[in-house]
Design a protein around this nucleic acid. Structure first.
Lengths: 339, 339
DNA sequence: TAATTTTGAGTTACCGATAACATATATTGA
DNA sequence: TCAATATATGTTATCGGTAACTCAAAATTA
């Protein structure tokens, strides 16, 4: 590897002079500058970011921690974050926790030892608390995305889960559905709780109460075990519609329904939170509460960079983004069954 | 930030002793070891990977460069790469070139200054040559993914584009289609050339020749300008089926067709390369040649790590993965039009 | 018991860059 | 013309670790 010392020697100057040429600092005669530049090009010199960071105490590296890289919500978010980071001259280190606290902790340790300048953190859930506290303890600036963590006071970008849920359920009511099941994420995730709240509020506003046998709690990521669905369908008065708390759950629900020979929306209507990215556009099918994923990433990154660069006040900021109800063909009126 | 010197002072030993405790090297009495460990925990010590890498000349960082983070093919590939990297104890730095040579070059510079140990490189196209040569010049090990670059001799993981294309076109023939358009990627991408070859071979095998007016060359990523489609449709003898060279192009084609009031497959059949990840499972629609994206990432990463760790022979390896023809509902027989 | 080996540390130099300070000319002003 | 200032560059120390070498005390051997 070529270092500034190699350049210095060949150009007949000191290393410091080379450093000055690279960084355009100090006074250098035009002649020396040209000579050094020429040698740098000849030797294909590239500064060592490690050494630089060690002395500057700045890596220009940010980290984006998401919970599911195969979920289009997060990849679209990632693109927003990447664009914003690049614009501000930062590099981005991606990490994927798979909704797993242990994997998340591993990544936090990695993040700490890498000395990144800041973290955009989509937590797995409430128990991410200690992972976030770990960052706080080491004074790494971070912004929380998508899920609020009780006990953490930080900048945060959220979707309006309650309202989104209400909208979806109201849509189902409007189609005549009364028996609406909720296939929810784990209750140690704030969005799952809020979507439940929105769901129950919508029921109450329509003079109904929550029937616990219609509510399932799973992980947000997988729907491997669909036995819970069997229980739902075996109910005396089974649901005519299912509200899945996110896109991946909806995928699982629909696949499981089909496996059982049930048509969507013919036999049962399905709605969910989050859209499906570009792929969702080909065959518009699911009625969703679409969140502005790109903006999640972009705004979150802006908050983070503001804070890192000292352009943010001490109090933490909280951005709530609305979701958009997109009515497609996974829902239909209960009064006109196709069967 | 806590350093080994802080630990050393508080534990009443030298920095070297602390280093030895951390790395389990040298001889340390059990007593000292315990004392040092205790102080490390008390102060929440975390080793500085920068300093470590500076002396060891190893960062344990790998980079994955893809061309489109919103394309499910690449995110699934990314997951495969990430899993394999993690298993081998490496961290992964993602980058997204957007099929743009300039962005790609920027990332290569970043990669070089970050001193990553190796790169998993999905090139934008033939002109990535100089970016790859830049890596070679600096002796950074890399593995090329998905697209072969003339002039570069390196490990590479490819899909069998020719055969996949032939299969798709044969499928269309079997349905009675004779006027088959090809909406291809740019010809400076090897997969575009091979898919063209597969397309023309299939035609020839069926005693047809390529009609140039049925072939469009665009970028693999966007289908913003769909005027070329108008020309296709305005032909005296317009196509009854379209073969899109990848999933993103298929998306654009279908959306454009619908905008013009044409139904798929009613008015025109569509097939493409690459599936749509988890989202593709909800509403199976497009007939595709699905490539094993996860394996692309996983195998590529294995080749890379083998090479980095000196477990690979000097000659470069070439892995070709087959694609699977998945027949769904975007194609129908020409003899039974629904219209 | 003296010589030798082993054990458990410490010292020094270096990885590649930069901040802070030092210094030799060149230039300017009185 | 000589001090004062400006200009261009060099020296040294440091960021946080680790490799390589050194060394005193304890344990082993003859």
């Amino acid at each position: 590897m070529i270092t500034i010392y190699d350049i210095a020697e060949k150009a007949g100057v000191s290393a410091m002079t080379v450093s000055r040429v690279i960084n355009n600092t100090g006074r250098i005669s035009e002649e020396t500058r040209k000579r050094v530049r020429k040698v740098m090009e000849e030797l294909h010199y590239i500064p060592n970011a490690l050494a630089r960071s060690l002395v500057s105490q700045k890596t220009n590296l940010l980290s984006l921690l998401i919970t599911d890289i195969t979920n289009p919500f997060y990849t679209t978010l990632a693109r927003g974050a990447e664009d914003a980071a690049k614009k501000a001259g930062y590099r981005l280190l991606f990490a994927n926790s798979d909704e797993d606290y242990v994997k998340e902790k591993d990544y936090v340790d990695m993040i700490l030892s890498t000395r990144v300048d800041g973290v955009l953190f989509a937590p797995a859930g409430d128990r991410s608390l200690e992972n976030l506290q770990q960052l706080q303890k080491h004074q790494i600036p971070f912004v929380v995305l998508d899920r609020e963590i009780p006990g953490i006071d930080a900048d945060v970008v959220l979707g309006d889960s309650k309202e989104g849920a209400r909208n979806l359920v109201e849509h189902l009511f409007a189609l005549g559905h009364q028996r609406i099941a909720l296939v929810n994420g784990s209750l140690d995730v704030s969005t799952a709780r809020l979507r439940y709240t929105g769901y129950s509020e919508a029921l109450r506003l329509n003079s109904l109460t929550v029937d616990d046998s219609l509510v399932i709690h799973l992980g947000f990521r997988d729907f491997h075990d669909d036995s819970a669905l069997d229980e739902l369908l075996a109910l005396e008065d089974p649901p005519t519609a299912i509200f899945a708390a996110n896109n991946m759950l909806a995928l699982g629900v629909i696949q499981s329904l089909r496996k059982r020979g049930l048509q969507v929306p013919g036999d049962i209507s399905v709605v969910c939170f989050d859209d499906f990215g570009p792929a969702g556009a080909i065959n518009p099918f699911l009625t969703v509460a679409a969140q502005p994923a790109y903006q999640f990433g972009q705004l979150g990154m802006q908050l983070l960079i503001d804070r890192i660069e000292g352009n943010a006040s001490n109090e933490s900021r909280r951005i709530m983004l609305p979701s958009e109800l997109i009515i497609r063909s996974s829902t239909q009126s209960i009064s006109t069954p196709v069967s």
